[in-house]
Computed example of a mutant assay.
Amino acid sequence: MLDEGGYEVVRRDTTRNEHEVAASTSISDIAQDLTIRMAARSHPERPSRRKPED
C-alpha cells in the first residue's frame, strides 16, 4: 500500500528476466492484469491450445 493511496505491484520472473513495478488505485484492475498475465504465460506441463475442429 502506498502512503498517498493505492497499491504498488511488483511483478518479477527471474526465469524470464522480467521485472516490472506498477501502481494502481483499483484492486480489481490489479487482479485483472495479473490474471491476464498468468493466463498468457506458457507452461511446459499445460497442453497447447487448439481450435476445435468442425
Rank of each mutant, 00 (worst) to 15 (best):
residue 35 T to V: 03
residue 50 R to T: 14
residue 20 E to P: 02
residue 11 R to S: 11
residue 47 P to G: 12
residue 1 M to P: 08
residue 36 I to Y: 08
residue 11 R to M: 10
residue 20 E to Q: 14
residue 46 R to T: 09
residue 51 K to F: 07
residue 47 P to T: 11
residue 34 L to G: 00
residue 42 S to N: 13
residue 3 D to Y: 05
residue 35 T to E: 08
residue 35 T to R: 12
residue 15 T to L: 11
residue 46 R to G: 03
residue 29 D to A: 15
residue 1 M to W: 05
residue 36 I to R: 15
residue 2 L to R: 02
residue 42 S to Y: 03
residue 26 S to L: 08
residue 14 T to M: 00
residue 31 A to P: 05
residue 51 K to N: 11
residue 12 R to W: 00
residue 20 E to W: 01
residue 43 H to R: 14
residue 24 S to C: 14
residue 44 P to Q: 07
residue 48 S to A: 12
residue 34 L to W: 01
residue 44 P to T: 05
residue 9 V to Y: 00
residue 17 N to H: 06
residue 25 T to G: 10
residue 7 Y to I: 08
residue 35 T to Y: 07
residue 30 I to Y: 02
residue 6 G to P: 03
residue 31 A to M: 13
residue 50 R to C: 07
residue 32 Q to F: 04
residue 30 I to A: 05
residue 20 E to C: 08
residue 10 V to W: 00
residue 52 P to G: 10
residue 42 S to C: 05
residue 34 L to D: 00
residue 19 H to V: 00
residue 48 S to T: 14
residue 11 R to E: 07
residue 27 I to M: 11
residue 54 D to V: 15
residue 21 V to I: 12
residue 22 A to N: 13
residue 49 R to H: 04
residue 22 A to Y: 07
residue 42 S to D: 13
residue 45 E to Q: 12
residue 53 E to Q: 14
residue 40 A to S: 14
residue 2 L to M: 02
residue 29 D to W: 03
residue 42 S to R: 15
residue 27 I to G: 07
residue 45 E to V: 09
residue 39 A to V: 00
residue 25 T to E: 10
residue 2 L to G: 01
residue 50 R to E: 11
residue 27 I to Q: 13
residue 28 S to N: 13
residue 17 N to V: 08
residue 23 A to I: 05
residue 40 A to T: 14
residue 51 K to E: 10
residue 14 T to K: 01
residue 39 A to W: 00
residue 18 E to N: 05
residue 11 R to T: 02
residue 45 E to H: 12
residue 1 M to K: 13
residue 4 E to Y: 08
residue 52 P to T: 02
residue 5 G to E: 03
residue 23 A to R: 15
residue 32 Q to K: 13
residue 5 G to M: 06
residue 47 P to M: 00
residue 31 A to G: 07
residue 33 D to H: 14
residue 2 L to E: 01
residue 54 D to R: 14
residue 4 E to K: 15
residue 18 E to T: 06
residue 53 E to P: 03
residue 49 R to T: 06
residue 4 E to M: 03
residue 48 S to K: 15
residue 41 R to K: 14
residue 18 E to K: 04
residue 18 E to D: 13
residue 1 M to R: 12
residue 45 E to G: 09
residue 16 R to M: 06
residue 7 Y to G: 03
residue 30 I to F: 00
residue 24 S to E: 13
residue 42 S to I: 05
residue 2 L to F: 01
residue 16 R to L: 10
residue 26 S to H: 06
residue 37 R to F: 03
residue 25 T to V: 09
residue 14 T to P: 02
residue 14 T to H: 02
residue 25 T to M: 07
residue 1 M to G: 13
residue 18 E to I: 04
residue 16 R to H: 11
